[in-house]
Deep mutational scan, measured.
Amino acid sequence: MSIQHFRVALIPFFAAFCLPVFAHPETLVKVKDAEDQLGARVGYIELDLNSGKILESFRPEERFPMMSTFKVLLCGAVLSRVDAGQEQLGRRIHYSQNDLVEYSPVTEKHLTDGMTVRELCSAAITMSDNTAANLLLTTIGGPKELTAFLHNMGDHVTRLDRWEPELNEAIPNDERDTTMPAAMATTLRKLLTGELLTLASRQQLIDWMEADKVAGPLLRSALPAGWFIADKSGAGERGSRGIIAALGPDGKPSRIVVIYTTGSQATMDERNRQIAEIGASLIKHW
């Protein structure tokens, strides 16, 4: 067993022997301040990774656009098919120029040779490549099948209805392509620590998230040296922004954090800054 596999296998073990965790309302004060600064709703939840206990939450059962955070769930569904012998990570998928959609920095470079399922998941999570996500959605049967996968996990809230990039439209009061912070946090925890996926697939999923290259201005910008984070960000229309993450000190994750916002007129930089400040408060009061 590799060191990384050992780390993920012992996530519940280490967490069980940690000192009790206590909620700190100071972080919620910052979440509410972010709402004021952005002029928009902000949803927040913080779960203990081992027990699933909610440590703090704000608007945990209000719907927010998922945006690209759905790509972690998508690759979880792909990995479940791999575990069941219905898919192979090494299978190569070929596609054409007509398949390319807006923001496809990886797939646009491989029109000639195609990409493997493993490479597509890596591109979808680490670079948020939209064509990679659409190609992977095709392998599982489309958005409705991802929703069905989530329902089978016990998540009857999260739903995907459309493809990239239309799913980022974020129309107010439109339930399409949305989740709730509580539902997303619980589902992410199941994917990373539950028995739904094999140990190898859980490790692969967290490795992809740990290698995320496009979430630097968010929670990662607030992390002290030595902290662990595996995350996936999302951005959408109407001032929408979000991030889902597993993080913790001492090089291992111990909490799940989900943050979503929508309806702001603020710039992307300002949305990023507010999420980073929430992260800084979380870490300060850990």
Rank of each mutant, 00 (worst) to 15 (best):
A77T: 08
T198E: 11
G43W: 00
I278T: 03
Q265C: 09
I11E: 03
G263L: 06
T116S: 10
G142K: 04
S2F: 11
I11W: 12
G141I: 05
N272L: 02
E61G: 13
V8Y: 15
T186I: 15
I283L: 11
T186R: 14
E169Q: 12
P224T: 06
V257T: 06
A222C: 15
R91P: 01
G251E: 11
G90F: 10
V72C: 07
A124I: 05
G263A: 08
Y44H: 03
F22T: 06
T138I: 11
I243P: 00
A266M: 13
R59W: 04
R255Q: 03
N173L: 14
L137N: 04
Q203W: 07
I244A: 07
M184N: 01
E237K: 13
N173R: 13
W227K: 00
T187P: 00
T198K: 13
D48S: 08
K190Q: 12
I206E: 09
P249F: 04
R176V: 06
G239T: 02
A34T: 11
A183R: 09
L282R: 01
T139C: 09
H94Q: 13
A225C: 13
P60D: 15
T116K: 06
G85Q: 10
G194D: 13
T261Q: 07
L160K: 02
C121M: 08
C75I: 07
T27F: 04
I3T: 11
A222M: 12
P60G: 15
D129I: 00
I256F: 06
H156D: 14
E166Y: 15
I275S: 01
R162P: 01
L191R: 00
E35S: 05
G114Y: 05
R92C: 07
I243G: 01
E35F: 02
P12A: 13
Y44F: 11
S57M: 13
R271L: 12
K109S: 14
A16Y: 08
Q265F: 14
I45R: 03
L111G: 06
P65W: 01
D250H: 14
E169F: 12
Q203D: 11
P172H: 10
L197T: 05
G226V: 04
W286L: 04
Q37C: 11
R189I: 07
K144M: 12
S104N: 05
Q204I: 10
S221P: 09
R189F: 12
C75L: 05
E169G: 14
C75Y: 00
A9C: 12
E277H: 08
K109V: 12
P217D: 14
T139V: 15
Q203S: 13
D207C: 10
A245L: 03
V106K: 07
H285K: 09
L219V: 10
I243M: 06
R189Q: 14
L196D: 11
A211I: 07
S254Y: 09
M268N: 07
E102S: 13
I45V: 15
M127L: 12
D48R: 04
M209R: 00
A211K: 13
E145P: 09
R59Q: 06
N130P: 00
T126F: 03
L47I: 14
F13T: 12
F13P: 07
Y260T: 03
F6T: 07
R176P: 04
L74H: 00
E35C: 05
E56F: 04
W163L: 13
I244P: 00
K71H: 00
M66N: 02
S96R: 12
A124S: 10
G248E: 01
F58V: 09
R7G: 11
A9G: 11
S80D: 10
V8W: 08
T116E: 10
G90A: 13
R189D: 08
E108K: 12
G248T: 01
T193V: 15
I93K: 04
D113N: 13
R81N: 13
F149M: 11
Q4L: 09
W286N: 03
N168Q: 07
Q4G: 08
E237Y: 12
P105V: 07
S122W: 11
A182R: 14
S221R: 12
V101Y: 08
K53Y: 13
K232A: 01
E119V: 02
R255T: 05
L223D: 01
E210S: 10
I45H: 05
R162G: 08
D231S: 05
E108V: 13
V42T: 06
Y44L: 11
M268C: 05
D129F: 00
M127R: 09
I256P: 00
A266P: 04
M67R: 01
A245K: 00
L120E: 01
A77K: 11
L199R: 10
L79K: 00
A246D: 03
S104V: 04
K213G: 08
T193S: 15
L100T: 07
G85K: 11
R159T: 10
I243Q: 03
R273E: 14
T126D: 07
R91I: 04
P181C: 08
P165A: 07
V257L: 09
I125Y: 00
L167Y: 02
A124P: 00
R41M: 11
E119H: 09
L219H: 03
I125E: 01
L223V: 13
E169C: 13
S128T: 01
G85T: 07
Q203P: 02
V106R: 07
T198D: 10
R118W: 15
T262V: 05
A16C: 13
R91Y: 06
G236E: 02
K284E: 15
A170K: 06
G239V: 01
L196K: 15
E237N: 14
S254M: 14
S2C: 10
R162V: 02
M209S: 02
T186H: 13
T112R: 14
G52M: 06
H110N: 08
I93V: 13
R63T: 09
G154W: 04
D99W: 07
G52D: 08
G251C: 09
A16Q: 12
A23C: 07
L150P: 01
M268W: 09
H94I: 15
